[in-house]
Design a protein around this nucleic acid. Structure first.
Lengths: 229, 229
DNA sequence: CGACCATTTGATATGGATCAAGCGATGTGG
DNA sequence: CCACATCGCTTGATCCATATCAAATGGTCG
């Protein structure tokens, strides 16, 4: 089992690897489930994992919790780039700096691996190189889908978001949203008022139930799906 | 020199390699300037290079002309994913199918290389593998920038588009736009009326000159830049 | 209990879409 | 060579979805 550091990592500060970092068997394992390299770090809710333009020396994998990446535009608006759930890899760059900032949305445990280690492995092991490429390609695909969302209307965006979260959290009954309405709004390019109104509209239309503001039950998936491309 | 097939490739049909396909020295050269592998194919204006969901057996590089990639949503709207100018690589996928369609905007000559060839080389040559990764990472970066555009207002989008095209076409004086207003609108997530109005507004504000509808002179770059993030 | 923060709900404003018409360049046939 | 159709673009008038501004509600934690 992965050893657990219980030092809430200070924001921005590069993670300190803890003792139990075993001999790296394969950097590929970074992306697998039975990994044995890197360090596990705990981040408190809303703490920064890294900032935009900081050196991209590490690659991250969510073990538990949820992470958002985002950019703040010069006029103060924030655009959320993605939400990362357990199992998701984030922060992998080919350049030397992170292009987005990353924060823990909830208390999170994150597996942190040195990028240089992975890249060194990739130069020896084809399958690792391929995995690096694949990770970036997945990110590209996700970004393309996100881009297509932003040209749709509010109902379509919110519906797509709910279906995406339902898929990814693969929990049978209700979706438990870790993020705030503001996070959702900034992801969808809407205001929090519009997100809220759209959700109540879906509830009125019996497409969803909202037992609590962060718990959503999809009642009529196909109705939500019909709103999409 | 690369040999030139003068068969306007029939839309959708996979390109037929022509005789002069030399022994592939390095797939990396695909991305370099002094390439010696693959075939050059001419595409007439508005002809399809490949369609969404078609097998992604080839990778493409613009030698001359301009290419657009796009997706048509179920409601008929079209989203242009990117414009590719001479030197740009497009159509590289990690999966087996193209995620967007591609068309020549003007008559274009395109270098076409078998993806399997490049991937085979990548498994032998680290630098090729790295180049594949880098190409996908560039595409990711471009898509992230594009996504950030779509949350801005019309003036900011059009200004960003003009500055981007000015940068990329690195021609001193005027930008010669190969694409129609509709292409621009579908790239920016606006209507052609809004694009047109915004351009005339910039002209009135003396930020640009519009000698002909597809020729634009940037008069006040910093004014355009100020509109951006 | 009371303060605080997230969320919802309400009223109004507005940027860009839509609908519609005009204009200029290019090409075609008589 | 000119009348006329066509196409891409511009301009005008109106409408509507979402933003904005503002207030009420509800849940959480000290």
């Amino acid at each position: 089992m992965v050893q657990k550091t219980h030092s809430t990592a200070p924001a921005t500060q590069p993670p300190v690897e803890t003792g139990s970092c075993e001999a790296p068997r394969s950097a590929l394992s970074m992306f697998g489930t039975e990994t044995h390299m890197g360090a596990t770090i705990f981040y408190d809710q809303n703490s920064e994992i890294y900032g935009e333009n900081e050196p991209a020396d590490y690659v991250y994998k969510v073990l538990s919790g949820t992470v958002r990446t985002y950019k703040v535009l010069n006029d103060g608006r924030r655009q959320v780039g993605a939400f990362y759930l357990p199992g998701d890899v984030f922060g992998l760059e080919i350049g030397d700096e992170h292009t987005f900032s990353a924060e823990a949305i909830t208390d999170s445990s994150i597996l942190v691996v040195k990028r240089s280690t992975i890249i060194a492995q990739a130069s020896r092991d084809n399958s690792v190189a391929r995995e690096l490429w694949a990770a970036t390609a997945r990110e590209l695909r996700r970004t393309q889908d996100h881009l297509l969302l932003l040209i749709k209307n509010a109902q379509e965006r919110v519906a797509a978001f709910l279906l995406e979260m339902a898929d990814r959290s693969h929990s049978a009954g209700a979706i438990e949203l870790p993020m705030s309405r503001q996070d959702i709004a900034d992801y969808l390019g809407l205001t929090i008022e519009t997100v809220s109104r759209t959700l109540t509209h879906f509830e009125t239309a019996a497409a969803i139930e909202l037992p609590r503001s962060r718990r959503i039950v999809l009642r009529n998936r196909s109705a939500l799906h019909k709103l999409n491309a």
